[in-house]
């Protein structure tokens, strides 16, 4: 974990993977980001990010089931590894601690 830095977009993609669970594959993540974040991202960017995360050992992938929509092609479903989940949690906690130290953010 030491020395691993997570980019903002990487974090976003990982979060989407967690939400989508078994449906976490390329185009779905793009759509999810569009709906949840109101942000347009390119398919290729998502793909490349996912592969990079896989290299870092934060996500794993397996080939999923066949659907008619995809002309009989399988999806590559991505899923967070325990390291990935750890890292996200760690990141959130630290962020929370920092935020709690800033008076302006103590709203609720």
């Amino acid at each position: 974990m030491k020395g691993l830095v997570l980019g903002e977009f990487e974090e976003l993609v990982m979060l989407m993977c967690m939400i989508l669970k078994d449906e976490a594959y390329g185009i779905n993540i793009v759509e999810e980001i569009r709906i949840k974040m109101n942000r347009k991202v390119n398919l290729s960017a998502v793909h490349v990010t996912l592969y990079r995360l896989e290299d870092k050992g934060l996500v794993t992938s397996h080939m999923g089931g066949v659907t008619q929509m995809r002309g009989g092609r399988r999806k590559r479903i991505f899923e967070l590894t325990s390291t990935g989940i750890e890292m996200l949690k760690d990141l959130q906690e630290k962020r929370q601690t920092i935020l709690s130290l800033i008076p302006e953010f103590k709203l609720s």
Binding site: Y25, G26, I27, V30, E31, L43, H47, Y51, M63, M69, R70, G71, R73, R74, K75, R76
Partner: peptide
């Protein structure tokens, strides 16, 4: 080994 999922995604996106 990347082609299947990428092309699949592209087709889905195309249909949308």
């Amino acid at each position: 080994e990347l082609q299947e999922s990428i092309i699949g995604d592209l087709e889905e996106q195309y249909l949308i």
